[in-house]
């Protein structure tokens, strides 16, 4: 029963990722890493003996510990990579805001020049 639950959870996560990509709620490059996590869930869920063998080879007596440690590590890596992505996005926004301000300053200056020209031609 436990195998079924864990394996089904993996499949559910995979289906959710596919749905989010289909609905354009998630970019495919972010989806790939989550699909990998879902695949691991399903694999170790439906075939727990693989996890037992992995734990034995690593010298871990209680095999679910390996799953927890791997899962925790994967989540930390994903969280850090998300922050890297977010930093990049924030820098892009900063650059765009700066560019917008620069262009606004130039537009204002051009408008002033145009007003001056107009006034001079009226005066003439």
């Amino acid at each position: 029963m436990t195998e079924l639950f864990t394996g089904a959870t993996g499949l559910f996560v995979a289906a959710t990722i596919v749905y989010l990509i289909k609905r354009d709620r998630l970019q495919v490059r972010h989806g790939v890493s989550w699909m990998f996590v879902a695949a691991m869930f399903a694999l170790f869920g439906f075939a727990p003996s693989l996890l037992d063998r992995l734990a034995a080879s690593l010298g871990v007596a209680y095999s679910p510990t390996v799953a927890l440690v791997l899962g925790g590590s994967a989540l930390i890596i994903k969280a850090v990579s998300s922050d890297v992505e977010r930093s990049l996005s924030e820098v892009k926004i900063t650059r765009i805001v700066q560019r917008l301000a620069m262009l606004e300053a130039d537009i204002k200056r051009l408008e002033q020049y145009a007003d001056q020209d107009r006034q001079e031609s009226i005066d003439r």
């Binding site: 900063t94 805001v97 700066q98 917008l100 301000a101 606004e104 300053a105 204002k108 200056r109």
Partner: peptide
């Protein structure tokens, strides 16, 4: 010359 930021940086 004034550079008006649309949000605080």
């Amino acid at each position: 010359y004034v550079l008006p930021m649309v949000c605080q940086l």
